[in-house]
Design a protein around this nucleic acid. Structure first.
Length: 630
DNA sequence: TTAGGGTTAG
């Protein structure tokens, strides 16, 4: 242009901002010949505010505009609204409140722009009371469709769908695409996925077309529902209208396939349109790691240059679910060495899970120390993870201390503490915790009863065990699972009440008589030297688990215990020539930075002699003090 | 020529 003026400069800078090219906009702004006025500043300010990674430039520029008062450039209502929106994006309510103050001072707090932006900002920052103050304190003419939509969204965030609906249906003629989209997401955020889909359908019936936001919201719903069929339908729609170039839509498609467990489709969708999209890649990592496919997960994880806590946690949880604590701890070392982000509670929970698996207390203690020093919020999941870790690492006193100091509790946390006490032989405490739990209004679940029954089993408390077993079924309407039956049979067997064990077995449906229950019953028969029953169990057990070598050994031992060497020989003979998997339970001890693993009758350890001699003393002491058979 | 409301991953 031969003749440029401030209008043409503003127009071209605005065009770059509009098309998300803030770098070019900044370059033009900085040129010596660029003519600038307040509008130029506001334009670039909004560009910085909406661009990820440029937020601090916006704050800096706003400060600079403030200082330029004497040059005739000041901030106006446009600049303030832009900054309120930025406060919402950064969920910085302190900044937002100051801007609200500026609005009041300059008399700009009663416009449709200020009302909608303030409602949005306070809602995003979780200050619902302030949202209501702004909304109720605004004159009707300043509450337009934008403010109305902001209010619907605020009610949805607050979890008050009914209020959101009442605004939505009070003047249905005012509803635009954004109102409908807000409601779809609102339903989904509050767990009403089916209703969200119905709203999306009725949106079209009301003559409003789906836009990219609608499609992204619907895909999000389908991920939660794990609906492959409708997911494919929406995918087809996306292919027709070309909206896959939208990053929310493309990563949404990838996520639906991941959540449905169809990694083949997910992989091709990711390669076609999710490549280099962090959200799509994250979904892929989560998808693979939740299926235990850690090689694939790691390949994608390594390709992410800017890792965040979401992808880290996905990897941690993947290894943890596969029960590979070494991989979790190795990844944790990698995290400490390379990650600038501070670990949050979910990262810590994953690493604590690995410590629990390995009975390795040191890293757990370090995490505990770190969380105390940094003052991180101890949420319920984190407290539970500490309780579990300290219990499983042998320090139930620490576990109790953390449990006692927690302000909030839930069923899972109680379960961890009850199980911890049970495993350490503090059955009275377990029972007391159960009382506290039910009195506090927390509903016990099948895991609670598993912990209580295992406390009874370890201490031979038949009557208490029967009481909990009965109350689980009758008072709490929980059907016993294999673990509960196993506990009871074990309990009866050790208390020499084979008659009771038989009675219980008779009451279990055929389908529920799985190998674990039969195995427990076999032990009960063996302790009570009932060879006839062992024979009966043998047939059923080998029919279900004929390839499990441990079952043959268990049978052989059962016959041996009552002196039936002929039968034992027969079982040993049967084993020969078969390719059998053998599993043996092991114990782990973490001593001097090294894991020591022990199985029953193990003599492989380099300090075997010392260990057995100590074991001899401990066993002697225990049998003297214990009233029960060990 | 500048501003406000709705959408993703643990």
């Amino acid at each position: 242009m031969p003749e440029r003026n401030v209008f043409s400069w503003n127009a071209v800078i605005a065009a770059y901002v509009k098309f998300n090219n803030v770098n070019e906009a900044r370059e033009l702004f900085k040129r010596d010949n660029c003519e600038r006025d307040l509008i130029t500043y506001n334009t670039l300010l909004s560009g910085f505010a909406k661009t990820d990674g440029c937020e601090s430039e916006a704050i800096e520029m706003f400060g600079e505009m403030h200082r330029k008062e004497k040059d005739g450039i000041w901030i106006d209502d446009f600049s303030v609204t832009t900054m309120v929106k930025l406060s919402a994006k950064l969920t910085n309510v302190f900044y937002g409140e100051q801007l609200h103050g500026v609005m009041v001072k300059t008399g700009n707090d009663a416009t449709k722009f200020s009302v909608s932006s303030l409602i949005h900002m306070y809602s995003k920052c979780g200050k619902f009371k302030e949202v209501c103050n702004v909304f109720n304190g605004s004159r009707v003419e300043f509450v337009d469709s934008v403010a109305r939509n902001a209010m619907i969204a605020a009610y949805c965030r607050e979890g008050d769908i009914d209020k959101a609906l009442s605004i939505f249906w009070r003047n249905p003629e005012l509803n635009d695409t954004i109102s409908w989209n807000t409601l779809i997401s609102g339903y989904a955020q509050n767990g009403y996925e089916e209703e969200a889909l119905k709203i999306a359908v009725s949106m079209e019936e009301n003559g409003l077309k789906w836009d990219e936001h609608t499609i992204a919201a619907v895909l999000n719903v389908l991920s939660s529902l794990k609906s492959l069929k409708i997911g494919k339908e929406v995918h087809a729609r996306v292919l027709k209208n070309g909206s896959y170039s939208n990053k929310f839509v493309s990563s949404g498609i990838v996520d639906v396939y991941c959540k449905c467990g169809n990694m083949k489709y997910a992989e091709s969708a990711h390669l076609l349109y999710g490549f280099r999209n962090l959200y799509s890649t994250s979904s892929m990592i989560v998808g693979y790691s939740s299926q235990g496919k850690m090689v694939e997960a790691k390949r994608l994880f390594d390709s992410v240059s800017e890792k965040n806590l979401v992808v880290w946690t996905a990897m941690f949880l993947g290894y943890l679910n596969l029960r590979q604590p070494d991989s979790v701890l190795e990844l944790a070392r990698d995290f400490i060495a390379n990650e600038t982000n501070v670990p949050d509670s979910l990262v810590m929970v994953s690493v604590l899970g690995a410590c629990s698996l390995q009975a390795y207390m040191e890293p757990g203690k370090e995490i505990h120390g770190h969380s105390l020093r940094t003052g991180i919020l101890m949420d319920k999941k984190l407290v539970t993870a500490f309780v579990d870790m300290y219990s499983k690492c042998g320090n139930v006193e620490y576990a109790e201390r953390i449990f006692d100091s927690s302000f909030e509790r839930d069923t899972v946390m109680y379960n961890a503490m009850i199980a911890g006490c049970a495993h350490h032989g503090h059955e009275a405490k377990s029972f007391q915790l159960f009382e506290d739990m039910t009195e506090g209004g927390f509903k016990p679940d099948e895991i609670t009863f598993m912990a209580l029954l295992s406390a009874c089993r370890h201490r031979g408390l038949v009557l208490a065990g029967e009481k909990y077993f009965k109350s689980m079924i009758e008072a709490y309407n929980i059907s016993p699972e294999a673990g509960h039956y196993t506990c009871m049979i074990d309990l009866y067997g050790k208390a020499n009440r084979l008659d009771k064990a038989i009675e219980l077995m008779e009451g279990i449906d055929q389908v529920e008589k799985d190998a674990v229950i039969l195995g427990a019953f076999l032990n009960a028969c063996s302790w009570n030297k009932n060879t006839e029953l062992v024979k009966e169990v043998e047939e059923k057990l080998l029919a279900i688990e004929g390839s499990n070598g441990s079952r043959y050994i268990q049978l052989a031992n059962a016959y041996a215990s009552s002196g039936r060497w002929d039968e034992m020989k027969r079982i040993r003979h049967q084993m020969r020539g078969k390719e059998l998997e053998k599993f043996s339970g092991c114990s782990l001890a973490y001593i001097d930075n090294q894991v020591h693993m022990f199985t029953s009758s193990d003599i492989s350890h380099f300090k075997t002699e010392a260990i057995y001699s100590m074991l001899h003393f401990v066993t002697k002491d225990l049998s003297e003090i214990s009233e029960y058979r060990i």
